[in-house]
Write a protein that binds this DNA or RNA. Sequence first.
DNA 1: TTGTATGATTATGG
DNA 2: CCATAATCATACAA
Length: 405
Amino acid sequence: MSFSICVAQCTDSLAATMDDQARIMQSIGGVSLAGHSVQGGMALPPPHGHDGTDGDGRKQDIGDILHQIMTITDQSLDEAQAKNRKHGLNCHRMKPALFSVLCEIKEKTGLSIRGAQEEDPPDPQLMRLDNMLLAEGVAGPEKGGGSAAAAAAAAASGGAGDNSIEHSDYRAKLTQIRQIYHTELEKYEQACNEFTTHVMNLLREQSRTRPISPKEIERMVGIIHRKFSSIQMQLKQSTCEAVMILRSRFLDARRKRRNFSKQATEILNEYFYSHLSNPYPSEEAKEELAKKCSITVSQGVGSTITVSQVSNWFGNKRIRYKKNIGKFQEEANLYAAKTAVNAAHAAAAAVQNSQANSPTTPNSGFQMKDEEFQLDSAESKNTLLTNMFTGGYPAPCYQSDGRIQ
DNA sequence: TTGTATGATTATGG
DNA sequence: CCATAATCATACAA
């Protein structure tokens, strides 16, 4: 959004408003510029202390003055040109009288103008935008905003609180948006003030020639402020859009799956199968696993792995292992062998042995929560074969109460 | 192109 | 809040 355009818009409409005023004065004042007639109700007051002998000439006189005033208004007070005429006007003997007349007219017309647009209910959309910006941490206080945004993002993503990489990325972008928003807002504020002062000066200047009540200046200021706040609303709107886009991209990125590296999977599997009887790593264990996975992957292409990802992995692994132990048997044996090697530093012969029928071979089942999850050793040995024939799952025997036999 | 593997999300329960 | 189960959506192999 171009700032200068906004100002231009504002200026335009302001000019239009002033134009309107001039027109209103012209039409309501009921004075034809030729000075031929003065309409009924709005008749000019009789000149003080004078009889009407030279009425025609005076009417002409007044008409001239009015004409000059109108011209000044219409010409927006071109300084150099109008100075002399203005001076002349100000010193004119009829000036005070005319001024009071104009004031009176103004008083009457001003009421209807003011009455027409007094109501100014807080725009519901603006409030919505404000609320959203506040909630997203764009409009809030300085550093609290960042954490508020993080909290909002965490809440939106289901509470996975600590995937720092993507989070910091998100936060950085949000901060950027935030900064832009604030600088723009400040610019608008400043421009609004400048413009208001300018207009007020202008009006004050004009008020020496034509009657402008403080109420009217107030009204004008109100108009300007409304204009600027509508511009601000555009800014807020586009900021909201930016935040939404950022967030959806953030969530999309999270949703977009990237497989873990070979090493990471290996580490996780190692832990899983070596703790098969209780595959629930503690918080610390998860942290350690996440760190280990991230380290081994750091020189590669993959991203780092977070604690919540480790949790996801174990959650998926448990359920999938449980659902089809047969499918994981080979893998289980492999990792069992691996851990055996790692733990005991055994000789190659020992490895062969353990692969065949070591006690560490995970056919002993594990405890899932409260449910006992046991597999018959006979069945276990035949699973691969079973799969080859059935091509499907070896019928996990769910009982009516949901337990697995 | 299709089926499977897999990481992430959602719904539900304690 | 954590676990399971179901489901989504993509990566990847065949």
